Simulated assay, not measured.
Amino acid sequence: MTGAGVSAGGRVVVGVDGSEPSVQAALYAAEAARRRGVGLLVVHVTPWQGFDDALPMAGREVKARFEESATLLVEAAADTVRQETGSGDVTAAVVDDHPVDGLLALSADAALVVIGRRGLGGLPGLLLGSTAGAVAQHARCPVIALPEEWDETAARTRPVVVGIEGGSGDDEVLAFAVAEAASRATGLEAVHAWRDPSLEAALGGFGPFVDWSVVEEDERGKLSRAVAGWRDREPGVPITETVVRDRAAAALLDASAGAELLVVGHRHRGRFGRVGSTTYGLLHRAACPVAVVPLER
C-alpha cells in the first residue's frame, strides 16, 4: 500500500526505516496489537511529497526507484513480523510525507504509535530528535519509544511504572497504565516525585527549620487519592505507591531500571511547542520503553 491517504483505522502503527532497531520495534508493536485485539500497520514514511511536478524526468526516475526501495523495506519488516509472530493481520504501507507529519497524521485514528529510539544513524537521540521526540510531542494517541536491544521476554516479571503529578491529567495516564498492566498480567507501581527547588532556594537558611515530613505526608495523600479509584475499577492489578523527594526525571529514570514499561503524560503546547524537559529526558535515557500519553491542555 502506498500513498499519503493511508489511515490507521484503529490499528497499532509502527514506523520502520530499515534499521535493526526499527524491526525490533515492529515486533514489539505486533505484541501490543495482539494484546489490544487489533491489527498492525507497518509504515515507512518518505519525504518526497509534492515533488512529482517540480522534479525533471531524471528526478522522477530517482523518486520511483526510491519508492520501490521503500516498498521492499517496509514489506521486509512486515514479513519478519508475520514470520516471527504468526499474525495474519499485518499491513505494510509506504506513506509519501515528511516522517513526522506522516506519523502524526496516522496517530489521529491509531490505537498506539510505536517507534524505535535509534535509527539508521545508530546514535541515541538521532532518530529521537528528528522523529520520535516530535511524534511523542504532538501525537493524538499514546506513543511508545522503544530502546535499542530491549528484551521484552526478560522484562515480563517487572511492573508497569507510571509517573503521577498529582494534577488533572493523572486519570488519563492511569487509565492507560492500568490497562497496560492488566493486559501484561503484571503489577503497577505509581511513582510521585516531589521537590520544589525554587521554594528551597527562597527559604535559604530557614530550610532546616521546615518540617518536610508534613509536606511529604501531603504528597503521599495526593498519590493515594489519584490511585484509589483504580483499585476498585481493576482489582486484578496490584498497585503499589512510591513517593520520592526528588525531581521527577531522576525518580522516574531510577524506576525505569526495574520496569517493563514507563508511562508518563504530556500536555500539548501547540504545533511549535517543545516536549517537556522531564519527558524529553526519559525518552532519551530511560532503561525501558516509555509510553507518552497525550493530555488535553
Results as ranks from 00 to 15, higher is better:
239 I>L: 01
2 T>I: 12
193 A>H: 07
178 V>C: 04
237 V>R: 01
102 G>W: 06
254 D>L: 14
292 V>A: 07
85 T>H: 08
151 D>G: 04
182 A>S: 06
27 L>R: 13
248 A>E: 02
246 D>W: 10
19 S>C: 12
34 R>K: 11
196 D>C: 13
185 A>H: 12
158 R>S: 07
113 V>C: 10
89 D>G: 07
39 G>I: 06
223 L>D: 05
145 A>Y: 03
275 V>H: 06
80 T>P: 00
123 L>A: 06
180 E>R: 09
17 D>L: 06
172 E>D: 08
263 V>K: 01
245 R>L: 06
245 R>N: 05
25 A>C: 01
29 A>P: 02
229 G>M: 11
158 R>V: 00
194 W>H: 09
76 A>E: 13
125 G>P: 03
62 V>K: 13
251 A>C: 05
143 V>Y: 13
127 L>D: 06
275 V>T: 10
74 V>Y: 14
89 D>Q: 13
211 D>W: 14
217 E>I: 04
15 G>D: 03
27 L>N: 09
285 R>F: 11
102 G>I: 02
57 M>Q: 15
139 A>W: 09
264 V>S: 07
120 L>E: 02
63 K>T: 03
242 T>E: 08
33 A>C: 01
38 V>S: 01
89 D>N: 14
81 V>L: 13
104 L>T: 03
135 V>P: 00
217 E>G: 06
125 G>D: 03
192 H>G: 06
193 A>L: 05
186 T>G: 03
278 T>V: 15
98 H>T: 02
274 R>K: 11
237 V>L: 03
201 A>D: 09
259 A>S: 12
67 E>Q: 14
112 L>E: 00
